[in-house]
Every structure is written in structure tokens, then in C-alpha cells.
Computed example of a mutant assay.
Amino acid sequence: MFSQDDDSQQRVALFLVFGLVAIVVASMLVFGVFKVRSFGRTAAPAAQTALVAGPVVAAPATLSTAQAASDAASVKVEQGVVKFYFASGKADLAAGANEALADVVTGAKAGRKVAISGFHDATGNAAQNAELAKQRALVVRDALTAAGVAEAQIELKKPEQVTTTTGSDAEARRVEISLQ
């Protein structure tokens, strides 16, 4: 008799917990979509012309190599390539991603193709890592399309496994975008 009551209470508690988790996840997705869609209206004009007009201008959210090598998500622009670094096991874009994409969006709107390359580290299951690298590349692709880049201008390359010599696999967990 007590076990049925306990099971019933546990089911109700689990239902409430899963319901709250679903609400939080849905809220984060809605907020993320809203933030990505509002990207095109907030980009700075000076940063938008950097890849089209001449030398690379780093986005305001550019981080140093030491910061990019940490386990936190980050973004930097290096020699005309936008590099998104991801936390281990995550596919979330770093803060400042939209600002770093402004140059790429401008280049794509000027007719250039965009190449997206995903990389992953060598720790853990290789198939899962490749799938995660693909998911990360798709997240970056979705941010580009939300900013107005046509899917026909975007080329997704096959994920590659990278081993680093720095002793940190954070450098390998990245997606690179370049204009061609």
C-alpha cells in the first residue's frame, strides 16, 4: 500500500521536474532564435566591410589564444578565418558570435561562398565526436542563414579529427568559417 503511494508521488515529482526542464529548454531556444534573428539589425557598419574591402578586422568579441584554448566557448577572428571554440560536449555558440559573423555575412552578400569546417578532439567515442562536430557546424550554419546568408552559398565540409600538441583538446573543438 505504501509503495503505490510512493510510486505515485515519485511519478508526479518526475513529471514536474521534466516539465520544468522542458520549459527552461524551450525558453532558451526561443531566446536564442530571437537573438540570432535580431543580429542583422545590430551589426556595426565598419566591421561589416572588413573581409570584402581589405585586411581582416577582428570583431570586438575576439579572444586571445590562451582564452580560446580554455574549455569555455569562445570566438575569434584570425587571418580572415572566424573560429568558434566550443566547450567539451556542447554545441552552443559563444557570446559575441554574431559580431564575428558580421564580416562573413557581408562577404557572402557580396557574392562570395562560405566554407564551414568542423573539427573535434580525439577524446571519447570518435563517432559521437564527429556527430557533435557536425551539430556545431550546423549551429554556425543556422546562425549564418538567420543573418541572411543563402544556404546555396554555404558549403559544409566533413568533420575532421584533430590532435593537438598543446596538451589541450579545446583547440580541436572548433568550427572555422572562411570566405572563398
Rank of each mutant, 00 (worst) to 15 (best):
M1G: 07
D7A: 14
V17K: 10
S70A: 06
V82R: 02
Q180L: 12
R37H: 02
F31Y: 12
K109L: 14
A150C: 05
T106H: 15
E171Y: 03
G167N: 04
A87V: 00
M28K: 08
F2M: 08
S74E: 09
A43R: 04
I23P: 05
A46L: 15
V52W: 15
Q135C: 02
E171N: 11
A53D: 14
A94G: 01
P45V: 03
Q67T: 13
R174Q: 13
L132A: 05
V81W: 04
A61C: 01
Q128D: 15
G89T: 11
A66F: 13
A61P: 00
V57R: 01
A108D: 01
T106C: 11
V149F: 06
V81S: 04
S74N: 00
D71R: 07
T123P: 08
L20K: 10
T62M: 00
L132K: 06
A68F: 02
A102I: 08
K83Y: 01
K76M: 09
G124N: 11
Q180C: 06
S3W: 09
A143K: 07
F86K: 04
A47G: 05
S8G: 13
A50V: 11
T42D: 00
G19D: 04
G111A: 07
K35V: 09
A115L: 15
P55I: 06
L20Q: 07
F18A: 01
D121R: 12
K134D: 12
P159C: 12
G111D: 05
S88L: 13
A13K: 12
R173K: 14
D6P: 00
V36P: 00
A73T: 12
S88H: 13
A150T: 11
A100C: 01
A152G: 05
A66L: 15
V36Q: 05
E171D: 14
V104F: 03
D103A: 10
L63W: 08
Q67Y: 11
A61R: 00
A46F: 07
L132W: 09
V17F: 10
A13P: 07
F86I: 04
T145F: 15
A137V: 11
G124H: 07
R41M: 12
Q9V: 08
